[in-house]
């Protein structure tokens, strides 16, 4: 850890210190939730949760557990602040985010408490960059009140199969309709575009389907523009869990393996677009 000696002196005053040998483990997962600039950081002894919201209809959360970090010290039960995500990502990739194996950027992220900037020390090949990003008043994130007890339908798919579907989705369609049902068509994605409609059906016994727990036929529409950013998380992930609750709210949970094989989660909540009568 080339950085540790350098900032040793000031460590006492920080209420949050997190270090990573490979900054990509953080930057990649933050890219997957880039909906807009306002990212709410919430650190607890368990780890870091970053929340981004859009249009009061969509919320993306990234969870990075404490043990992903080489060092994770927190002096309070909970530390929260708001930073500009674009600026943060620019800083995290300030060395160009090289993908050459063996060349990694190390990160030490420190926060001094309310009113202080977020300080980043980035080091690659002996060069150190210090970035200070002003923090803003944390806002309370929207509570989507998505409880697992209210979940009516749930499937877990290998991301690979969903990636293909998402890459081919007809973007002229305003909505993506998701049908989940204990009977045919089991799990269906539908679009309604300029040139017609398209359906992608996944049978429940497909190799790609790891879990199929549907209790009731549900058809809900979600704004394509809201779901489109989730493809970034899909691209990184190896598995995805799709759940809907009794109100038609959608939860997409992505299991992401980072460069070192550790597991992080990205979660999207989305409100349904409108009521659809079940056919």
């Amino acid at each position: 850890m080339p950085l540790s000696t350098q900032s040793e002196a000031g460590d006492d005053q920080y209420i949050l210190v997190a270090s990573l040998d490979n900054v990509r483990n953080l930057s990649n997962i933050l890219k997957a939730i880039t909906l807009n600039d306002h990212a709410l950081f919430n650190a607890t002894p368990n780890g870091l949760k970053v929340t981004v919201e859009d249009s009061k209809c969509l919320q993306a959360n990234a969870f990075i557990q404490a043990d992903i970090f080489q060092e994770f010290t927190i002096r309070e039960d909970s530390v929260g602040f708001l930073v500009n995500l674009t600026v943060l990502l620019d800083c995290l990739t300030i060395f160009g985010g090289s993908t050459v194996p063996g060349v990694t950027t190390a990160l030490r992220m420190c926060y001094n408490g309310y009113g202080y900037p977020l300080t980043l020390f980035l080091e690659e090949g002996g060069v150190v960059t210090v970035c200070k990003i002003n923090t803003q008043e944390p806002e309370e994130p929207i509570d989507f009140d998505f409880c697992s007890t209210n979940v009516t339908n749930k499937v877990i798919l290998q991301s690979e199969s969903l990636r293909e579907a998402f890459s081919e989705l007809d973007m002229t369609s305003e909505v993506l309709q998701i049908t989940m049902s204990p009977s045919q068509p089991y799990f269906r994605l539908s679009t309604f575009g300029n040139s017609g409609n398209a359906h992608y059906d996944y049978p429940k016994d497909s190799d790609m389907m790891e879990l199929f727990q549907c209790t009731k036929t549900q058809t809900n529409r979600y704004k394509m523009s809201l779901l489109k950013p989730s493809t970034k998380a899909l691209a990184l992930s190896s598995k995805v869990s799709v759940r809907t609750d009794n109100r038609g709210f959608l939860s997409l949970q992505y299991l992401v393996r980072n460069d070192d094989g550790q597991i992080c989660f990205v979660e999207y909540y989305c409100c349904p677009d409108e009521e659809v009568e079940v056919e």
Partner: peptide
């Protein structure tokens, strides 16, 4: 008034395109 292309894919995935 639809022309339907159905692609039968691996793993049982079925892609149906109803084109006008």
């Amino acid at each position: 008034c639809r022309l339907t292309f159905t692609l039968h894919c691996k793993h049982g995935l079925l892609k149906t395109h109803n084109l006008s």
